[in-house]
Design a protein around this nucleic acid. Structure first.
Lengths: 341, 341
DNA sequence: GTCCTTTAGGCAAAGGTTTGCGTAACGCTC
DNA sequence: GAGCGTTACGCAAACCTTTGCCTAAAGGAC
């Protein structure tokens, strides 16, 4: 049917030609402009012409005219960690629902700090706004720029008002209450670097809650990798007055911790219980299935898109906390504390 | 310094105004157009003006004029599986090196087959070309369209000439030779659905190689999830003449298989050896560290970008096989075959 | 001094859409 | 049938760059 050397795709003018009307009329009809009045018959003719010509609006021209690109930028620190993937997927789908596309930027491993300034993506009109998850506490010299629509997601940034985060405090509460339920009086929290906002909020909540419950808390900060989780696990296993439960911030650290405890002949959950803050299907299949707190990652991704679109549309800034389903997934890695220290 | 209500970002005309030249001259100087002749002093003045005005070329206007968007679309089936993430990261970085950005599209879980036609992204000038990994063997009614620049990566598609894949045959060879080295005479290959091209190539290579080595091969197809891997493992464990080594196509299936063998009291590697085709750092930390074949995923992602840019630049189509580093990572899950069946 | 070649940079069109405004034709009222 | 309010569209500008072509001035050759 179209054996010709692929004539450049149809333009508005082509459709207008077929339908015998002016391009502007085609535009209004196809976009459902309510301010226009066309006869039903004309409208039908235009739609038919568009269909026949295989018309697709040129998004570039549209973007130029309307100074809206219809795409959003998402900056994540490291795709390797599964949570970013789920956040990404959540954002992707919500963006698609709302007619936007998402550009992912993975901040390079050796990125300098303060990180490079992705506002240039907005200045170059590549995206309408930014979703940032590369903020580090204190490290960033307040790039918050009211002229550039942006939200910080999962990790807070700037002066506030643009943050979309989950209820880490609630997650910690689930964990601590679970620990209490099983009689634990001394617990450890193995988490990422303290410069990461998410970590800081978990640690803060843990300190407060443990104090209230009279539980001894020990916090260990390490990188979110298997190797560093292993190292932390080794240290932990050597302690003479060892905590009876260890909560872990990332799945990578969890793998390391598990291996370290196994190598040190520390039985899970007999000698030490373990809880992960990173739920993943594979946790159910480890040698001792891991109890975890399942966080609403997809929802956070979606909420970030929603919040960013609010900013783009000039609505009031406000912080958002995604509370959705957050549940304790009980598996086999938590047992009654053996010898209350 | 810029306390004003964020004047709309500087345009070419603004810079020209400051430098006292015509916009076209600014454009040529800033883009290093070799066909233009300007005095060094003028050039310097222009650059200074651009710097001072914080000028950023509007990529949308540029795209409209040049009919090049500078972005690439990448369609992946399911982000959950880590290999897509690594492919994505590889593509992201290479694209960035070459001045492009990448838009990720995750094909919905419940996507219809034949899948939706992402050519519309090109027709709408949202991207300059497509990297597709959602092709299924036979299922797709030849969407190959010479008018739309595209490559199929990791999974072949179309009539050939646009495929960028890894050397799955080489990977299988590493696995089989490893098996031979350890005296295995009967092996199983637990892999994804046969409609997936990658799987088909692995299976084909395995059949040929095993035949040559006189090894008995049993192929099990299942979905790439923990649950289906578990189910396959259960079946496998029940076999009376059980293979002595099982190779696994995806890490998710591997987790399931491992759990099934554990539950069935089949010792790894004593009763059955295991090899994964999906290398991941966490494999080193499982209760029995998993031997795997490490594939050049980042390189494949990068090569896909390179190949797509060739198509976009109108160069000759050709299939590409990424061979780079492909290594056997020897860990603890392979042992000498106990009782040669 | 005249003519030709460089040098240095300006002019304007084009790319496809959106949208404020303008204007015919039509129908209705009186 | 004149006047007026709709109805149904058309006109053209604007969004910002890039680029083919043009021109004016300067420099060189004779």
């Amino acid at each position: 049917m179209e054996l010709a050397p692929r004539r450049r795709t149809a333009r508005l003018a082509d459709v207008a030609g077929i339908a015998g009307v002016h391009p502007s009329t085609v535009s209004r009809v196809l976009n459902g402009d309510p301010s226009v009045a066309v006869r039903p018959e004309t409208s039908r003719r235009i739609r038919e012409a568009a269909r026949q010509a295989g018309y697709r609006p040129n998004s570039v021209a549209r973007a130029l005219r309307g100074s809206r690109t219809g795409s959003l930028g998402m900056v994540v620190p490291l795709l390797r960690n599964p949570i970013w993937v789920r956040l990404q997927a959540g954002a992707l789908h919500r963006a698609q629902e709302r007619g936007y596309v998402v550009m992912i930027i993975e901040e390079a491993l050796d990125a300098p700090h303060p990180a490079i300034d992705y506002r240039y993506l907005v200045d170059e009109s590549r995206v309408d706004g930014l979703m940032l998850a590369n903020a580090l506490r204190g490290q960033r010299p307040e790039v918050a720029d009211p002229g550039v629509a942006h939200v910080f997601f999962n990790r807070r940034g700037g002066r506030g008002g643009n943050n979309v985060v989950m209820d880490e405090g609630g997650a910690v509460k689930l964990m601590v209450e679970h620990a209490v339920e099983f009689g634990h009086r001394s617990i450890a929290l193995l988490d990422g670097p303290r410069a990461v906002d998410t970590v800081a909020r978990r640690v803060g909540a843990a300190r407060a809650l443990c104090a209230r419950h009279g539980i001894h808390l020990q916090v260990i900060h390490s990188g979110a990798t298997e190797a560093e989780g292993y190292a932390a696990g080794v240290t932990l296993a050597r302690r003479n007055r060892r905590p009876t439960l260890c909560a872990v911030g990332s799945i990578n650290q969890l793998f390391g911790l598990y291996a370290a405890l196994r190598d040190a002949k520390v039985d899970v959950p007999g000698d030490m219980s373990v809880v992960s803050f990173d739920e993943d299907e594979c946790l159910a299949y480890l040698d001792v299935a891991v109890t975890s707190v399942s966080m609403p990652l997809d929802e956070l991704g979606a909420a970030s898109v929603d919040a960013l679109l609010e900013r783009i549309n000039g609505e009031q800034s406000r912080d958002v906390v995604v509370r959705n389903p957050m549940t304790l997934v009980r598996r086999d890695s938590v047992a009654r504390a053996r010898s209350a220290t």
